[in-house]
Design a protein around this nucleic acid. Structure first.
Lengths: 342, 342
DNA sequence: CCGTGCGTTTAGATCGATCTAAATCATTAC
DNA sequence: GTAATGATTTAGATCGATCTAAACGCACGG
């Protein structure tokens, strides 16, 4: 009960091993009749292609490594789904790793992936990833696409998003409702996505001739945002609106405010980021900037495919637009007793 | 600028290829001095182990295939995270595939995984998966663990959960609040998880001497549940409590009820399943049966490791207990005008 | 001094595919 | 009828590791 090899198939079909090999790779070189014979033999013997052996001679492994910082965050899960959907149709297998936002672990994974001989790498770099990480990939000749986050001062293909338009619309909406004291809740992890969103916030505020009321870093969990609500609302200069770096924070804060009896959209306006499905479920709905992680994932995969095709082509990037989705959590400013005047 | 091979390392260290091979696999056969020499050489030359070549002689590929029905569902994403966390520490790489609840696609993935020579397979079978699927894996000698769902009449290792205790607690809680007219919202996909939960519902109702008011299948999306709220509440026999097959449906329905001005926990009691993070965020909180997908994933991975160790050992399974988490969405029954008497 | 045994090292065959370069065959051209 | 052409097919070397079985070095007992 041994494994069926290409040689067995060839014998059974009465051709040489080389011809059989051409058939499995459907090369145009083989004649139609021979091809049929070989294919019949393959089916009859239950032949399974051995990618391991193939990858030894040929350079390709039909395998791509994907490293994500946190699988339990639905945002990244959807990104992964987008990546997978494109690679799957290209016939490439995804080797998955979860860095848990740990740069050292991430290094380990890249090594493991090199051992597996991946044809390319899609990485959303963990916090604290060093330049070296990206440079090394270049040195090793492994096609690399960064996604959602970009290690500073590195050059590689990149699939991300531009928070500017969505942030601008969000701030404009708030300003239109009369808000002037607008605070921002950021993550406590430092990566390019954080700075990007924060800077687009500053820019949008600037354009509206406003100064941010505060920027408060918080651990990116529902609970930490929920717990922070009392503190945010008891500041001497009470905010009338708050924008959050993502919906995890946005939804957590939403609940925290409700706990306080502060009604989002009426007593304070609230904006999240990413427009996850749940933003539309809470009451009132959480206004949010839509970022389409699935599409970003697809883009990342497409960039990688292109890169694998042309290893020396110019560096490319694909930036997805964002847009604001208004919901009940944003409303006109209301002067409440106890408010500190602007 | 060629690839560094074991032979290069061996030469550089002044030993034979075989010895170098023993070092990379850290066999106890090599002496400490030689080991040090070889390791130094490896570091110096930047050697990368070639798993493809290794897997050709040895039977193992240090690779496991994981097939999930739907990555965009956070529940499965967390399951995957649990699987990954265990396999990662065991030094096994995860090859991921998303079947999209499509059995034919799933078959294709299994073939691809066989080509990659995976050492094992963890599958949450798509709807409509046939017996043959599991039997084939056995025939091929690929260790297989099913998780969360089990193809009927098949024998394989299995990591799942027992909804019974959680369901029992949920029903008891509702009954304690005086509810008698209790409906159930199921999925419209048919798999063992669906029947398992539905049967445990029937059993719990039975134990309380009650008959289910209705069982309504719905597409497992927020939107479909939200849209179904009016219909559910305008039935001639109006439910005073509803249990949902999962939190996607539970949260969707929660919102649908709010839209109608029907307040969960006051006007109707609502129970979800899975206890996702968002269940605690909506107002009032959605009571839910906790199912710990991360732990189930870990269990599945552990079962697979055991199976790979002992391919002919007895079939095992690991069933995680469930428990009820009470929140604001469950409350005492309130007789409202317009209610049809039981 | 030799045989025995143990711990370590090694040569050479081998896994299952792909590559190269040459051989084969059927046509067509002259 | 033979050479040239183009389309298929093939033998044999090769990728980079692991395996087997044998060889080696050394200490010890007889």
């Amino acid at each position: 009960m041994k494994r069926v090899t290409l040689l067995d198939v060839a014998k059974h079909a009465g051709v040489s091993r080389a011809t059989a090999s051409l058939v499995v790779r459907d090369s145009p070189l083989v004649g139609a009749a021979t091809r049929a014979k070989v294919e019949a033999a393959m089916a009859e013997l239950g032949y399974v292609y051995n990618l391991g052996a193939a990858r030894m001679r040929a350079a390709r492994s039909r395998t791509v490594g994907v490293i994500i910082p946190n699988l339990t965050n639905p945002f990244f899960a959807v990104l992964l789904a987008g990546i997978e959907s494109i690679l799957e149709t290209a016939g490439l297998a995804v080797i998955l790793a979860n860095s848990n936002e740990n740069a050292a672990k991430q290094d380990g994974f890249v090594n493991r992936m090199r051992e597996h001989g991946v044809d390319g790498l899609i990485v959303c770099p963990a916090e604290g990833t060093e330049r070296r990480f990206v440079d090394d990939a270049g040195k090793w000749g492994v096609p690399l696409v960064q996604t959602l986050r970009m290690v500073p001062e590195t050059a590689s293909d990149y699939a991300g998003m531009d928070p500017t338009p969505g942030m601008r619309e969000a701030v404009d909406c708030l300003v239109g409702f009369g808000h002037r004291r607008i605070g921002y809740v950021a993550t406590d992890t430092h990566h390019s996505a954080r700075t990007e969103r924060l800077e687009s916030f500053h820019a949008a505020m600037n354009a509206a001739n406003l100064a941010p009321l505060f920027v408060r870093p918080l651990e990116s969990t529902h609970m930490s945002a929920r717990m922070a609500a009392p503190e945010l609302m008891s500041r001497p200069a009470r905010p009338t609106a708050i924008i959050c770096h993502n919906d995890v924070l946005g939804l957590g804060l939403h609940r925290g405010l409700c706990d306080l009896g502060v009604m989002p959209g009426r007593d304070v306006s609230l904006v999240g980021f990413d427009n996850v499905a749940e933003a539309d479920l809470v009451m009132p709905g959480l206004a949010s900037v839509a970022t389409e992680p699935f599409v970003v994932g697809e883009n990342a995969a497409r960039l990688l495919l292109r890169r694998m095709d042309a290893p020396d082509g110019p560096i490319a990037s694909s930036i997805e637009e964002t847009y604001f989705v208004q919901r009940g959590s944003c409303g006109p400013v209301r002067t409440v007793a106890g408010n500190v005047p602007a």
